[in-house]
Computed example of a mutant assay.
Amino acid sequence: MESGTGFEAVHPDLRDASVFLTGGASGIGAALVEAFLRQGARVAFFDRADASVAVEEMEARTGNRPLFVQGDVTDTPALMAAIDTAATAHGPVTVLVSNAADDTRHDAQEMTEAEWDACLAVNLKPYFFAAQKVAPMMEAAGGGAIVNMSSGSYLMGVPRLSAYVAANAAIMGLTRSLAREWGGRGIRVNAVAPGWVMTERQKALWASPEAVEKHSQRQCLPELMQPEDIAGGVLFLASGAARMVTSQMLVIDAGVSVTG
């Protein structure tokens, strides 16, 4: 992500905010980590991949070094410990971005119970327990913001992603329920549903020229989406600019889906 492009709004209240993000080593997650770093936030992120090189690169680009904790979001005690580590280093977490996901394709007819459980263990369970963990910190700090990364795939009912789509639909339900339950504690809970973003994973596995051409024709804006295109919406929902926005889903998909 390049600074000074004219597309990066500044949210002063995010400076020095304690931000925790899951899945920040690559793709959309890495773009989000860097976006918060550019705001001057104190950012910690949790990922199973080794992000030590990415940390150095992010610091070189932004002048702000993130805290990286390696681990798997399916290991709930490890995730809880990582949040504690972040809070010790940066202060109580007041912004949580749950982003870690696995969109591996599968044939619904052939999917096993173990594969179903594994999909939800990555794509849903950590969203709840990370939120549960940070909620008391946010309440004690006077409030906070949770941004759950869902997916436009559930709005479109994309085939060969039945468990993933189900998890992302559930993320929106979870978002609305927590927003209602925790609003009195000063905690806002929203979701972002990205469309097809051209991450390195997507380009390597599924973004054939034919598939990309077909999808771009469904977009109102024909330009292919990049990870950085998601950052502005997440920063907005995390910031005081969205202080009265909760229980909502922001779709960032270049106009593929119609909501409202």
Rank of each mutant, 00 (worst) to 15 (best):
C220A: 15
A54N: 03
S26K: 14
S208P: 07
A170W: 05
V55R: 12
A87G: 14
V55P: 12
V234H: 06
A242F: 06
S247M: 09
G71W: 00
L37F: 06
V192K: 06
R180D: 13
R48E: 11
I146E: 08
A166Q: 06
S216V: 01
V93K: 01
G23Y: 08
H106T: 06
G142C: 03
Y154D: 13
S162F: 01
F20A: 11
Q109Y: 02
V212N: 02
G23H: 12
A163D: 14
A169S: 15
V258D: 04
G4F: 07
D47P: 08
A207D: 13
A89P: 03
D103C: 02
R243W: 03
A140K: 15
A121Q: 10
V93M: 03
S216I: 00
V189E: 07
V251F: 07
G233K: 05
D103S: 14
A131Q: 11
G183Y: 03
R180W: 05
L79I: 01
G142K: 09
G255D: 05
L96P: 11
A41W: 03
P126G: 05
V134F: 11
G24E: 10
R188W: 10
G27M: 10
A241P: 05
A145G: 08
N99K: 05
A44E: 09
F46S: 08
S257L: 01
A89E: 14
D50T: 05
V147Y: 07
T199E: 14
G24L: 06
Q226P: 00
A163N: 08
P92R: 12
L67A: 11
V10C: 12
